[in-house]
């Protein structure tokens, strides 16, 4: 069973869909418990979506985000790299929870879901790349 998953998503959200199928097959082959398997796919979806949608301005690119996942005894370690505009997810303020559905905004949920799913979230800018790393515990599944 492979302990490492690595893939680069290039282009748009259609490419992300294909990458998700590949990750889905990997978490099945790795026989992960349901919760970490789900969280790995959720974090991948949210971070990759954010990078591909907002990492570059109109007409800029190429748009690409690379992910590496290492299966360790107690956790999944995930690392994302992209050459888009600098974005530090650890510096983003927690969005205010709306008081009612009338006050709800359509966006801004993704980063909150990543924070809930990840035990650790770290960011650095390195060699012109955003490097976002996090850890998903295997316990408590």
């Amino acid at each position: 069973m492979a302990h490492r998953f690595a893939l680069t998503v290039e282009g748009d959200l259609a490419a992300l869909g294909r990458a998700q199928r590949a990750l889905e097959r990997w978490v099945e082959a790795a026989e992960l418990a349901p919760r970490p398997a789900y969280r790995a796919q959720l974090v991948f979806e949210e971070i990759a979506t954010n990078v591909l949608k907002y990492g570059w301005g109109e007409g800029e690119g190429p748009r690409a985000v690379a992910v590496e996942i290492e299966l360790e005894p107690e956790a999944l370690r995930m690392a994302f790299r992209d050459r888009g505009r600098p974005f530090d997810p650890t510096a983003e303020p927690e969005p205010e929870r709306p008081a009612s559905i009338a006050d709800a905004t359509a966006g801004g949920l993704g980063l909150g879901l990543v924070r809930k799913a990840a035990a650790e979230l770290a960011y650095r800018r390195e060699g012109g790349e955003n490097v976002t790393e996090l850890r998903i515990p295997l316990a408590g599944a």
Partner: peptide, 20 residues
């Protein structure tokens, strides 16, 4: 079997429009 923020956004948008 799986939901992410763009799926949630679809539900919230519909709920907000209906609430109005």
């Amino acid at each position: 079997t799986f939901i992410a923020s763009l799926g949630i956004r679809m539900l919230v948008t519909a709920a907000r429009t209906l609430a109005a």
